[in-house]
Design a binder for these strands. Structure first.
Length: 478
RNA sequence: GCCCCCUUCGUCUAAUGGUCAGGACGUCAGGUUUUCAACCUGAAAACAGGGGUUCGAUCCCCCUAGGGGGCGCCA
């Protein structure tokens, strides 16, 4: 077993907690637990213009929903700005940094020139040696780190392996803005050091930053943490994760009816594996998780697999817990308020009673709720005239005879309904399919293999169908 | 443009210098269930391309192609 690790999840509060961030948090959490260490939470809010209170809440909420707890209070990086500024001054005093008076226009021109000459568009080091006496008046300088120009910076990454960067490709980055505020790369180094972070697990979009941060660590005489840069998650088309492909906030996954346990299980298998293990408990994940087993190639997000896992977890979840989750979920749904009203006071009880049958058939909480809509349908049940017209005489008779019986089922448990419909089929000597087929075909305009749940679905939808019909002339069939 | 990373079934992935290249999701076909779902069984399905190294390469090296990331007084 490794030594106790102190990891950190360090999101910048400029948006929601997206799915890639959620996986990064999960990996940090798992590794901390695996080593018996801690995961700290640091909010990187040094970009004051883009950081918002709402984003902070969304991130904390998302982590809580995913049940990824952090140790101690969240650390707000902005509160350390003074310390960061002091370190910048120290680097300046040490000769590891210098004042730069270049204007934004000059920098822009510098980048364009470099690009046209086929060089990396970085800072050219103009003020590195230039006499500060030549500084233009009235300009507040930024402080740049004096990056080594020769040799190379190597990072031994637990995921990426040994990665070498030629120092000539790494320019002198700004560590303190002209307004006196620290920039990201300085803040991260100082905070990771001050917080005694032992392992930095983050997206591989930070790989180049790791090199720059390593240089700063060295200049300060501090040890670097262990790095583990995890490949990013791509969309289903292999391109960068877009909103259409799952780059949603975790709250969107909650709203779609996924369970946190299922999402965690899905996410942990994206880029990491433990032999053939697919479905694993949290305890197993913690026991098995290891940085070295993380793959180096990007993974595509696949909703189909997530759904499959969700269905599995749904079936394993106790009925009462599912009801509780639904109670929390419904208000967040688009038509939540109306639905809440429809469910009413007795609905939740019915729902719990019908749960054994419902959870077998649903893949998300939303789908489950949809399947259960027959439970909340007002009775007696109306049937749309259009549907009635489409039904042949036999089917109408069937429905007419069946509905009163269903009305009598109390409570409306799935089991009660099922046995009633089955009993009806037996008594009338008809095949169950014969009972449901015409109804289903007529009401949906499609011919699908009929089933008891099709019947139940029809009952649940009769109401809405009534609204759709042009000259809706709802007929009371009961 | 420059730097860095990646490439095994459609997708997530396993394993190995000699294997019938394994598992999972998805798909298809059966079975079970008087329907559906679940479940069970089976099938199709992959080492990006080209050079080396080697008795032998999916595995080691190089090149090409494709994909991704980075190149801010953003994080």
């Amino acid at each position: 077993m490794s030594e106790q690790a102190i990891t950190r999840f360090a999101p910048s509060p400029t948006g929601y907690l997206h799915i890639g961030g959620a996986r990064t948090a999960l990996f940090n959490w798992l590794y901390a637990k695996h080593t018996g260490g801690k995961m700290l939470l640091r909010i990187e809010d040094t970009d004051r213009a883009r950081s918002t209170e709402g984003a902070i809440l969304a991130i904390l909420d998302g982590l809580r929903w995913l049940e990824l707890d952090w140790d101690g209070e969240p650390v707000y990086q902005l509160t350390h700005a003074e310390r960061h500024r002091e370190i910048a001054e120290q680097l300046l005093a040490q000769g590891n940094a210098y004042r730069c008076y270049a204007s934004p226009e000059e920098l822009q021109a510098m980048r364009e020139r470099a690009r046209s000459e086929g060089r990396a568009p970085g800072y050219d080091g103009t003020w590195r040696h230039r006499d500060p006496a030549e500084a233009p008046a009235g300009i507040e300088p930024a402080i740049r780190f004096k990056a080594p120009r020769d040799g190379e910076t190597v990072i031994d990454d637990r995921v990426q392996g040994r990665v070498e960067f030629a120092n000539k490709d790494l320019d002198d980055l700004v560590i303190l803005r002209s307004d006196g505020t620290p920039t990201y790369n300085l803040s991260v180094v100082v905070d990771d050091h001050d917080m005694d972070i032992t392992h930095v697990i983050r997206g591989d979009d930070h790989l180049t930053n790791a090199a720059r941060q390593t240089q700063i660590f060295k200049a300060l005489g501090w040890d670097t943490p262990v790095y583990a840069h995890v490949p990013l998650i791509h969309g289903q088309d292999g391109a960068k994760l877009s909103k259409r492909h799952g780059a949603l906030g975790v709250e969107a996954y909650r709203a779609m009816g996924y369970l946190p346990a299922a999402l965690r299980n899905y996410l942990v298998r994206l880029g990491w594996s433990h032999g053939d293990a697919e479905i694993m408990s949290t305890e197993e994940m913690i026991a098995w998780f290891d940085l070295d087993a993380i793959g180096r190639s990007a993974a595509r997000f696949d909703f189909a697999k997530l759904e499959n896992l969700n269905g599995h977890y749904l079936r394993c979840t106790p009925d009462v817990e599912i009801v509780a989750r639904l109670q929390a979920l419904v208000p967040e749904l688009p038509d939540g308020a109306a639905l809440l009203k429809r469910i009413g006071e007795t609905g939740w009880r019915k729902l719990e009673q019908a749960m054994p049958g419902l959870k077998e058939r649903a893949t998300t909480l939303v789908e489950l709720l949809d399947n259960a809509s027959f439970l909340f349908t007002a009775r007696p049940i109306d049937l749309d005239e259009q549907a009635r017209r489409l039904l042949d005489a036999t089917a109408r008779d069937t429905l007419g005879a069946l509905l009163p019986r269903l009305e009598a089922v109390d409570p409306w448990s799935a089991e009660g309904l099922e046995s009633t419909v089955k009993g009806f089929a037996e008594e009338t000597g008809r095949k169950l399919g014969k009972v449901a087929q015409p109804l289903r075909a007529a009401l949906t305009g499609r011919s699908i293999s009929p089933g008891i749940f099709d019947v139940l679905e029809v009952l649940g939808r009769a109401e809405s169908l009534a609204r759709i019909g042009d000259q809706a002339h709802a007929v009371k069939s009961a």
